[in-house]
């Protein structure tokens, strides 16, 4: 048997590609991770009466319910000037990360057929989740901006810094999505556990109340700064509502985003070939 003289040599098809080849392939196929989730987003509400308006109505209703319960009935407004604005930022930022992470847990199992039939860098699937949910979050961001303007906030140069916070959150979300996607592919039970994790996180991330007001002990405040979601929300509030932010929170945000995204890539790509078995 001969390999023949012309043509490229035979290479092992089951060899994993090098990191640079892998990333080049991801970049070449980047449009997939934007166009497909955007189409899915369209398809989501296509048969409803309000159609694409749901992307606006949904976040508005959600914020309304939270304001009714925690702003009016339970009154958690202590220490906050603009509670509605405070709440809007917390809820919108928190739900972006929550939806991405929960969706990422099933991003591989949901696309099992695709994984089994087409060769492509699997990272495109959790990446599509992050992009899709981030696109779907833009209307909510619009609702938040309108709420802030309506409650008397004046846009200043700090509002521009929000772009950096969103970019940082994107990196954080991507890292979290990659780790959870791999976990979810190995142990399907993760999917059941995550809502409870996020329910807990919701109450310890200062979404509804001002941590600065309710937590006076310095040690406890430092512990709060270890919670990345609290860090992101606090930075976002600093941009849009003003006030002050501690260095620990900013450092926490940056370190979490960098560490999680690098770890996420390593953790995910190590299992690349085991997905879809």
């Amino acid at each position: 048997m001969t390999d023949g003289d012309d043509g490229p040599p035979l290479f092992d098809l089951t060899d994993p590609p090098s990191v640079s080849d892998y990333l080049r392939d991801v970049w070449r196929r980047r449009e997939f991770a934007v166009v497909v989730p955007a189409q899915d987003l369209r398809a989501l509400n296509m048969d409803t009466a309000l159609g694409q308006f749901w992307h606006l109505v949904n976040p508005a209703l959600m914020i309304g319910v939270y304001f009714l319960i925690f702003g009016v009935i339970l009154d958690a407004r202590a220490g906050v000037d603009n509670y509605l604005g405070f709440l809007v930022i917390g809820v919108v930022v928190f739900h972006l990360t929550q939806r991405i992470v929960q969706d990422a847990a099933v991003s591989l199992s949901r696309n099992e057929g695709l994984i089994r039939s087409i060769q492509f860098p699997r990272i495109l699937l959790p990446l599509s989740t992050v992009n899709g949910q981030t696109l779907g979050f833009l209307p909510a961001l619009g609702v938040a901006a309108v709420t802030l303007l309506a409650t008397g906030e004046v846009p200043g140069w700090r509002w521009l810094a929000m772009v950096a916070v969103l970019a940082g959150q994107y990196v954080f979300n991507l890292g979290a999505a990659l780790i959870v996607a791999r976990l979810g592919a190995v142990v399907r039970d993760v999917n059941q556990l995550l809502p409870h994790v996020f329910r807990l996180l919701f109450y310890i991330s200062g979404v509804l109340f001002s941590v600065e007001t309710f937590v006076t002990d310095e040690t406890w405040r430092r512990l709060f700064a270890l919670n990345p979601i609290y860090d992101i929300i606090t930075c976002a509030r600093w941009c849009l509502l003003g006030g002050s932010v501690s260095a620990a929170v900013v450092v926490g945000f940056v370190v979490w985003s960098l560490v999680l995204s690098v770890c996420g890539f390593v953790v995910f790509s190590r299992a690349e070939r085991s997905f879809g078995r």
């Binding site: 035979l10 098809l13 089951t14 696309n111 087409i118």
Partner: peptide
């Protein structure tokens, strides 16, 4: 296609074979 982890043996090629099928996408 190189998609399945092999228990043993090897599969080599000059380029990556592709399955005809996009229905899952």
């Amino acid at each position: 296609t190189g998609l399945l982890p092999l228990e043993s043996g090897r599969i080599r090629g000059r380029s990556r074979p592709a399955l005809l099928g996009v229905s899952a996408a």
